[in-house]
Design a protein around this nucleic acid. Structure first.
Lengths: 227, 227
DNA sequence: GACAAAAATGAACGACGTTCAAAAAGCAGA
DNA sequence: TCTGCTTTTTGAACGTCGTTCATTTTTGTC
């Protein structure tokens, strides 16, 4: 990032007349994209463990050292791929805004979309959650923003389902519902567990949402004690 | 420490009845346990990535090569540690069988126990789900058995909550409920997401269970279409 | 104590992420 | 176009990793 910023500021400072030196900036951007594409392919083929510096360089047609000209390290590349994956997921979940279905139906549609995306992009999707930054560093802010947009997708129909719920509580509930769906999808596709048929997983996901939405819209704490 | 342990195990086995060749078997078992303990410590300290053959050997007081005398590879060691973690989790969730609470309360107790275990053993617990076997091999059967015992813990109260539910459907529901709770705990403790306070996560987990159990025990599909 | 069989050892191997001295390319003034 | 300086790109080299295997050490039996 630091290098990128330097290159950009150089090109900006150079007189606007012609673009002499931001050709290199464009090349760097190209290389970033080619490396990210190679990384995506590597993850899709063999998971996070399949991302190797030398393979990426070969696929992108550059020297191994060139990776470190455009990325801080492989972690940053993987984070960038993760952001792309999140963006594609968000796009895949985008509501067809010409009709406004029942909020509970919309929640089910989102859950099914999430499952469908995870199925269709299993390795890339899993990489989102398997990846740990070296040394326990915190994820950058732009990455957290990308994630929170997903929760926002859930929040909208939730607001229509529970109009009397305070907004902060609704935001938490959106994350909780997202998490619950994620759990079912995650363990449902986990091959370290006994495998489930596709239809069974579909049905179980629907059962979760039915019960959850049903439990939310009826009286609270039906048979549960408070503490 | 390593010399002491070795000496002790030798002296214990010395002239015990007539076990000629299973002294070595005992030493192998000892080494397995010492290596597993070292691996547990390594994971607890720095996650799965912190498990290094040379460090394990140093901690267990053996040569690097000795690891491969008692384990196929590090994957098998990690699987063994995972089985231990599952066993400790199962033990931590064991019901206090002197009282028989409401089934919904029991489910909440299990969910809270799961969250408590995950909090208290974050790295080890996460290792259960992060770990992938090299080359996409399938987990051994004994490992799957250990997992299915967890689902069984959920199934018992579920059977009392939904006595009319067919048994196969109940088994699936147990896994689904477990998965949903796992999702909330998993993303709730995920530091790549915006962090949640402990109390908030506790409350959200309870909200999930209240809504889910409530939705299960009231009429099905309250506001959800079937599609 | 001597000897064959078994087990333990740790140097060595190939592959990995990352670095950095050196080479190549870019760019302005002649 | 050529010259000189700067920036970018390069890939051999470094340290570390999991794993192997020829060698050494220990074990069990006579």
């Amino acid at each position: 990032m630091n290098d990128v910023q330097k290159a950009e500021s150089n090109s900006v400072e150079r007189h606007a007349g012609k673009p002499p030196a931001d050709k290199t900036a464009a090349r760097r951007a190209d290389l970033r994209e080619r490396l990210a594409a190679a990384g995506r392919a590597a993850i899709a083929e063999g998971g996070l463990q399949n991302v190797k510096a030398r393979d990426l360089a070969a696929a992108a047609g550059c020297a191994v050292g060139a990776i470190y000209n455009v990325f801080e390290d492989l972690d940053e590349l993987i984070l960038r791929i993760g952001a792309d994956t999140l963006a594609r997921l968000e796009q895949g979940l985008a509501a067809p805004h010409d009709v406004a279905p029942e909020p509970a139906e919309e929640l089910l549609r989102l859950a099914r979309g999430y499952l469908a995306f995870a199925r269709a992009n299993k390795a890339l999707w899993r990489a989102l959650f398997e990846h740990r930054l070296a040394g326990g560093r915190a994820a950058p802010a732009w990455y957290l923003d990308d994630q929170s947009r997903l929760f926002a997708l859930v929040e909208a129909p939730l607001a229509r389902l529970l109009p009397d719920e305070p907004a902060p509580s609704r935001a938490l509930l959106a994350r909780t519902l997202f998490s619950a769906v994620h759990g079912v999808v995650s363990l449902g596709l986990e091959e370290k567990l006994a495998p489930m048929s596709e239809a069974t997983l579909d049905a179980e996901l629907e059962r979760l949402l039915r019960a959850f939405a049903g439990g939310l819209t009826t009286a609270d704490g039906v048979t549960l004690s408070s503490s």
